[in-house]
Amino acid sequence: MGKVQKQKEQNVLSIIERKTGRLIHEEEYGQRAIYFLYHHFLGRLLLKMIFARSYFSFLRGLYYNSFLSKKEIAPFVEKYGLSKELLKKNYQSFGAFFSRKEAVNLREAGKENTKENGEAWKEKLREKGQARKQAFYATASGKLLAYKIDQEGKIIFPCNENNGKSKPFPLEIKGNFYSIEKILKAPCPEFLKGGTLLVFRLSLPDYHRYIFPAKGKLLRTKKIKGRLDSVRKEAAHFKAFSENKREISLLELEGMGKILHVEVGAMLVGHIHNHSANQFPFRFAAGEEKGYFSLGGSTIVEMLSDKIMIDEDLFENTNKGLETKLEIGERIGYGKA
């Protein structure tokens, strides 16, 4: 059996859909090509010389933002089983389709993204008393991994609380231990120690706009120049978080303290578009759109303080080697009250 086939079989059981509990398989666009680029000598050479360069993403973007690319929309919708309603809209290019804006409703965990579910959740919060628990929402649609951050700033798998013998162990991939310091290119801030790290992996069919996860204010931002490697699993995507182009935002959430929100650029993603003006502090509401990505798969990393409690099922799935498929705007945790 070939390596590519083995990789495909491994991916079949690597994602769990949160709202149904089903194990699912999502076919990645260009999966064979990505595997070649990262696992063969010639592929790695082409990657270094051409495909990971910003000019390649720029040139590719010229086509996908032109009217010539409109013909790509219908096959894409069909291939990934997206809503046929999208075909009724007159997008001027595939790029416009990709970065389209849709309604986002804040709602309880696992609920469909509908206004009705959002209104029902608001009523539920009023009944429980919003002041007691501030909901923390998924900033994007995609596949989620959830880790703990230890007191030294290392990223770790949380121990099983039901088994007193188990201990947390660090995230290690191909001999590399991953830490907050590598992602930020700076020491881990004290407010993150003992907190949580969330990784939202957005593949091509996912909605590529993202929101603020709770009410608060944007204190400052920082841009880090870097490469444009793939963020897919077969490309050792954790390495990309410490080497790729990225934008870091320091947010202070009401009742939850400070968090760091990081957008990571990826191969074939030329731009990260954030709406917030350079006027700090910038105040925002829960669910307000923060920005969007142009073309390609992308990733968002959020680093949270210990004042935010993330739902246990997300940690459990990560410990099992499963990414959790969820949708933008669904509740994934609470602020400690």
Rank of each mutant, 00 (worst) to 15 (best):
R32A: 15
R209W: 06
H39G: 05
E108H: 10
K133T: 09
L268A: 08
E316L: 13
K245Q: 15
K225S: 14
G291Q: 02
I310Q: 00
F41D: 07
I180S: 07
I183E: 05
G175T: 03
N244P: 03
G61S: 13
K185T: 13
V199D: 06
P189A: 06
K174I: 02
P189Q: 04
N113A: 04
V199H: 11
I173R: 12
G296P: 04
F157W: 10
I16H: 02
K307P: 00
I328M: 12
K6D: 12
D206G: 06
R283S: 14
T299E: 09
A52I: 12
E288C: 07
N105R: 09
M303I: 07
T324S: 15
F315K: 08
L268E: 10
E17Y: 12
K128P: 01
N319V: 15
G2H: 14
F76T: 05
L144W: 03
A120M: 09
S242Y: 11
K239W: 10
H25Y: 15
E116L: 14
H275L: 14
N244R: 06
I50P: 08
Y178K: 09
L46T: 02
K71G: 04
T324R: 02
S66N: 06
A52P: 02
N113P: 08
G61D: 10
I149N: 04
A266R: 04
E119Q: 15
E123V: 06
R107S: 02
C159S: 15
F315S: 08
Y178N: 05
S305D: 00
T299Q: 04
L86A: 01
R220A: 09
L250K: 02
Q92T: 12
A146D: 00
E85P: 00
A146I: 05
N278L: 13
M49Q: 12
S93W: 06
L68I: 11
S179D: 13
F238T: 02
R246C: 04
A140F: 04
K290W: 01
L37M: 11
I24A: 10
L42H: 04
S54N: 12
A103M: 12
L268H: 06
